[in-house]
Computed example of a mutant assay.
Amino acid sequence: MTLLFILGMGMVLLAIVLVASALSSTTQSGGVTRSLAVLEAMTNAPKELTEELDRSFAERVLEPLQQRTLGFGRRLSGADSADRIRRKLDLAGNPPGWTVDRVTSSKVLGAVAGLVFGIVFGLMFDGSGTRLIMAAGGLALGFFGPNLYLYQKVHERAEQLLRELPDAIDLLTISVESGLGFDAAVQQVARNTEGPLSEEFSRMLREMQIGQGRAEALRGMGERTNVPDMRSFVGAMVQADSFGIPVAQVLRVQSSEMRVKRRQRAEEKAQQVPVKITIPLIFCILPTLFIAVMGPAVISIMDSFSG
Rank of each mutant, 00 (worst) to 15 (best):
L148K: 01
F121I: 06
D183V: 05
A111F: 02
G179M: 13
G129Q: 06
G110I: 05
D101C: 05
Q152I: 12
G181F: 04
L132G: 12
D167L: 06
E177C: 03
L205F: 01
E199N: 02
S128N: 12
L172Y: 01
G195W: 10
S202F: 05
V186K: 00
G213I: 15
G114L: 00
S105D: 11
I210Q: 13
V176P: 00
G118W: 10
L161P: 13
A217K: 09
L205W: 06
E216I: 15
R157L: 10
A168S: 14
R203L: 00
G211D: 06
L172M: 01
Q212W: 12
Q188Y: 08
V112C: 11
L141E: 01
D170Q: 15
I133N: 14
R157T: 03
K107M: 09
R224W: 13
M134S: 15
L197V: 10
E164F: 05
L171F: 12
S202G: 10
Q188I: 00
N147V: 13
E223S: 05
V189P: 04
L148M: 13
F117W: 06
S202E: 07
L197A: 03
Q187T: 12
L141F: 06
V103M: 09
F201D: 01
E223A: 11
A217W: 04
G118M: 08
S128W: 08
L115H: 04
G181R: 00
G211A: 04
T225K: 05
L115P: 03
E159I: 06
A215W: 00
S198V: 01
P146D: 07
V103E: 02
A168E: 07
Q152T: 13
